[in-house]
Amino acid sequence: MSMKKDYEDIPGTFVFDADRSREGYHLNQFCISLRLQKNRDAFNANEEAYLDKYPMKPEQRDAVLKRDWNRLLELGGNIYYTSKLAANDGINFQNLAGLMTGMGVDAYRDMMLNGGRKVDGNRFKKEWGEE
């Protein structure tokens, strides 16, 4: 019997559980390698060659090269890992959120200054018209 996932009906959210962790393992291990300056230097010198060291799926590799931040999460990436790739590109957590929400950096910052995203209407997928 598998464990029931009572968190899968939250909209716009990936809960990083064991299934996602397995799927994203090599992608996330690549991302965290960028924590260290010597690895950032090597990656920035030749992204393709650096990525060859990590046996991730072609679509994960493509999402890294394209900096498709949401796709990285859809393919098993976790935000604490993908944020290392963003940091390498000079993007901080707040600006990364601005990109992932599709709002853009300025509108996102304004929303946060006005108290953030409200929880009402954002609890369940059905409230977003999703299954």
Partner: peptide, 17 residues
């Protein structure tokens, strides 16, 4: 306290909670 850093619901804050 309340925060969501990821994906399309990022920015969630629930002060009451």
């Amino acid at each position: 306290m309340s925060h969501q850093l990821q994906y399309k619901r990022a920015g969630l804050i629930n002060a009451e909670w």
